[in-house]
Design a protein around this nucleic acid. Sequence first.
RNA 1: GCCGCCGUGGCUCAGCCCGGUAGAGCGGCUGGCUGUUAACCAGUCGGUCAUAGGUUCGAAUCCUAUCGGCGGCGCCA
Length: 427
Amino acid sequence: MALVKICEVLGGCHENEKVAIRGWVYRKREGKTLIFLLVRDSTGFIQCTVKKDSPAWTEAERLTIESSLTLEGTAKPDKRAPGGYEIVAESVGIIGLAELFPITKDQSEQFIRDVRHLWLRSRRMNLVMKIRDDVLQFSRDFFKNQDFTEVSPPMFISAAVEGGSTLFGLKYFDQNLYLTQSSQLYLEILIYSLEKVYCIAPSFRAEKSRTIRHLTEYWHMEGEWPFADMNDLMRFEEELMAYICRQTAEKCKPELEELGVDVSKLASVKTPFPKITYTEAVELLRKKGAKLKWGDDLGYEEEKTLAEEFGKPFFVYDYPTAIKAFYCKTYRDRPEVAMSVDMMVPRIGEVSTGGAREDDKAVLIKRIKDMGLKTEDYEWYLDLRRYGTVPHVGFGMGLERLLVWMLDLENIIDAIPFPRTTRRFYP
RNA sequence: GCCGCCGUGGCUCAGCCCGGUAGAGCGGCUGGCUGUUAACCAGUCGGUCAUAGGUUCGAAUCCUAUCGGCGGCGCCA
């Protein structure tokens, strides 16, 4: 008897054949002469019926919600069954008899989060995790096709990437180290030998942000490459984004539809994206009544206003130098403007930040000092400008933020299996 | 860091404004019924109302503090 996945049966591959499935009990309805079992595996759900005179009856009676089992029977088309197919059981083998499962039909946000390790079994989380896997795969495919090399940066770091207070500190034997908040500086090291490099790795932020778009540990997709400028950067980012969206729309259509996501939103992502300068953004916002002046950073409200204006992914570039990090390259004739670009999407705001990196040693040293940082902390970074410096660009994209936009998730915690927020880190 | 909201059986909630013996649904258990679709009917078990203090003859209810959770802003991806 063939051991099959549930999706195969639902697809009609085993009509009127004897099959065996392995999975978990999702629902059970018990009658005097008939038991209905809704069994799930990683691929879907199928209704199984157990009749009173079946040898499977005794074991089926004992089954509880979320018990694991093997079930053998005949796959039959049946209009009364959800999915159009059911398995008429001939034998049931209990693998793990479940205790009373705590998640029932009445659920609150709080409870679902308290039992995250069990909630991950839900259909919804299952679908999101599968799409997440595909999005990662599409991303890697795109980088690979563009001749990028995937590299593995460290998570333990000895100095701040941006000199901020948002780092998690930790004891490293008898030294103080930090968890990385970006792998950018390490990618910059590697472009001198591998040229185009990227990584998909965690970044950690100790910001006490309490919003639906912040995690303290998130997956950061970062790329860095030499001999490139702002135009190359924006072109790459928009092509990457469009590729991911269109591939997802094409390859994950059933999952997207089951999640209630409008597939056309993703299928219709096309390049080039709208691009406006920071200065234009400020003007546009002022016309709409916002009280901000050139030099002010764009807050979440401003980003949302702009995003509503475009209704799709777009870029804001050429920010004031003063609100950007020390490594941002500035225009030689306009040092008050930095070659920095953010990609924004509706509802979320920033999904990525990138830019040209300062490649002139003298300018970089001045910038480090102006920001109140110590050049001693960045000696190896300065070495990169001493030995064969090269113009280069790079960016970092928040994977979970991307997924929130793509899948219309209500909260970023649902874009990652084990979310870490300021208050949640269990299990 | 600042601001707002929430905490009552295993789960979801009502009761709180206006103080007077703690309620319902779901789940569990028992029985009945049914090709069921997170079924239905009857019965039953189950709560020191987050914690601590205060006001009061009397506090789930009013006041104070603490703890836990959620969200908004700031900061960021």
